[in-house]
Amino acid sequence: MTFALEASEVNKIYDSNVHALNNLSLKVDQGLVYGLLGPNGAGKSSFLKIITGLIKPTSGSINLLGKNIRELNELKGKIGYVPQELVFEDYLTVEENLKLFASCFSISNPKERISELLKSFQLAEIRKRRAGTLSGGQKRRLNVAIGLVIDPEILILDEPSAGMDPQSRNLLWEMINDLSKKQDITIIISTHLMETADRLCTKIGIIDKGYLITEGTPEELKARYNSSLSLQITFKKIPDQNKKIEFKNRLKKIIEDCEIQEDEKSLAVRGSNLELILTKFIETSTEIIGISNIQGININPVTLEDVFIRLTGSNLREGK
C-alpha cells in the first residue's frame, strides 16, 4: 500500500534545546483526511513544516507521496500548504496575490483557476481590494485559497480556521469536504476544533509535547478510551461531604473502571458499561443522597475533547 505520508522516528530539537518532536512516527493513507490534534506548543506546526520540507528534522525520515522529503524539487507543485500565519503580500490585491502564486507555481490556465478560487472562497467581490485591508475572516480565506492555487496531491493545512468567523469556517470545511470527496487528494490538517475534526477527519492523531500519543478514527478513539458514556447528577442542595464520600466509595466498589468527577452541586461518572453505570449510579445516589435532593440526571455522549483531555490533561481549545 502506498502511503501519502510516512514519517518514521522524527525528532526535532531547536537551537535552544527545545525538543519539539520526539520519535514521532505516523503513516497517512492516500486519500485520507488526517487530523492532527494537540495543544499549543505540542509540535504540530513543526511537524507540518518538516513534512513539507520547510525545516529539516534533527533525525528521522519522511516520505511524502513516495518521495523522500529531501528531494523537495520533485515534490514542488504537488504540495498545497496553508501555513498558520497569514502569508501573502498586504500591498497586493486579492487577485494580484493569487496571480503571483499561480505564476510561481507555473499552473496552466491561471485565469480560470483564479476565477474558480475567487468564487469558491467568496472573494470575487473583493478581488480588487488590497489584502492588508481585508477583515480577519477574509484574510484567512485568501490564505487558504493561495494554498489551493494548484491542484495538489496532498494538502497540508496548519490551523486554517484560526481567527475565522463561523460562516467562513463552515465554508472552509465544506470546501475541504468537497475536495476530499471529488478528488483523490490527501489532506493533513491541524486543528483544535474537536467537533470539526470529528466530523471531517477520517483519521486523527493526538500529539502532545512532541509525542504522538494515539491515533485512530474518531470512533475508535472514543471506544478505546471508555468514552462511550458520561452521567451527571445535579443536587438541589449541597449534600453532606460524608455522604458524597460514601457515594463515591460505594460506586467504585461496584464499577471498578469508572471515573468520578465532582464539584459542589454535582457528581459525574464515566465508564464503559452503560447498563451497569446507569442502574447502579441511580440506585446508589437515591439511596445515599436521597431522591428529594436530586435535581436531575444527564446522560452525555463523550466527545473527542473528552478523549483529548483524558490523554493530555489539557484543555485543547485553550491550550493550557
Binding site: 502569508v87 502564486f101 507555481f105
Partner: peptide, 13 residues
C-alpha cells in the same frame, strides 16, 4: 519573516 519565501519554496520558483 512572514513566510512568503517559505511558501514560495514549495512552488517552482
Amino acid at each position: 519573516r512572514f513566510g512568503f519565501l517559505d511558501r514560495l519554496k514549495l512552488s517552482k520558483l
